[in-house]
Design a protein around this nucleic acid. Structure first.
Ligand SMILES: [Zn+2]
Ligand SMILES: [Zn+2]
Ligand SMILES: [Zn+2]
Ligand SMILES: [Zn+2]
Lengths: 159, 159
DNA sequence: CTTGACCTTAGATTTAACTCCAAGGTTTAT
DNA sequence: ATAAACCTTGGAGTTAAATCTAAGGTCAAG
């Protein structure tokens, strides 16, 4: 039996978070002391660990609520249901990754086009790319006093 | 000169969003009519396009505010400053991608281990993995009436 | 018998970026 | 002249997942 502070320390969650999970129906302590203190059993702790593992895998609390309801009533669900949830989540994660990859590529193009030197940003190709309507990112045409080897190598489109 | 609805249509943003950007100091119309209507100039429109392009690349509005302040005062900034911002953003995006890739792999492992068939979820390997303390995901050991070719192929760890 | 650590509750605040609402004023077209 | 379409403002609501606050009750040690 754990008090809220003990369980919270044991699982590296804030006590507030446990109260929050209780309010949202994810995890209620099996007992209370006379004084009203929450007492969590070992099986409550297991349920919390289930929640934290699912969270670590990327499920939202709403999805975890659904998983828990299946967990408690396994025999009325099929593998297809469970796998379906995982596969939908997988799709969402893959979409988010694709979007971020697009960001990454755009940022990399911007970064590559800028010398990053001490020169004034008046002709900085990053700012010029954000000002212009085209997706093209041009190289800088201000003079570069500093060594240019890396810059030259990465710059593809002359400005 | 555009009224708010015109600019909003031209740039495919809600009028509310333009008011929101004004309230947060990103974009104020250069004029107002006597009746108080916002009137955006072409240069206001350009600024908006700058904002939208930066957003499309993944910058937050706070970061865009910073970029805009550099934009308006280019000569007092160096390429190093601008490139620094892009590179920091790039790092954050890469971290987020790494995190999501980790989610993706975990979900893929879970998905692969489950037959996805009509069998009861009582021995579903997804639920068992979430119940167990180890990161290992085991294959299902219930009997599978349906064809198992795909399932067998993807399952690595026997349960 | 009091200090300090711990616990209780309801409710407010945080973050980001909008989005919506109500109540009213303006423009434009018929 | 009147309806439709547009604009104004301030303020509230949305989403997710906590996190914090205030005001107070409980418990063990010294
Ligand atoms: Zn340069
Ligand atoms: Zn530059
Ligand atoms: Zn199966
Ligand atoms: Zn299964």
């Amino acid at each position: 039996m754990y008090r809220i502070g003990e369980l919270s320390k044991a699982c590296d969650v804030k006590a507030d978070t446990l109260r929050f999970y209780e309010k949202h129906g994810l995890l209620s302590p099996s007992m209370r002391t006379e004084a009203g203190y929450r007492m969590y059993t070992e099986s409550d702790a297991e349920r919390l660990r289930f929640i934290l593992r699912a969270k670590a895998v990327g499920f939202t609390l709403a999805e975890i609520t659904e998983l828990l309801s299946i967990e408690l009533d396994k025999s009325n669900w099929a593998c297809a249901d469970v796998k379906g949830m995982v596969d939908i989540k997988l799709e969402h994660v893959e979409e988010k990754i694709a979007e971020l990859n697009y960001f990454r590529e755009s940022l990399q193009r911007l970064s590559d086009a800028c010398c990053g030197g001490p020169e004034s940003a008046e002709h900085c190709s990053i700012l010029e790319a954000l000002e212009s309507n085209s997706a093209e990112v041009k190289c800088e045409n201000h003079t570069h006093q500093h060594t240019q080897t890396e810059y030259k190598a990465s710059c593809k489109v002359k400005g």
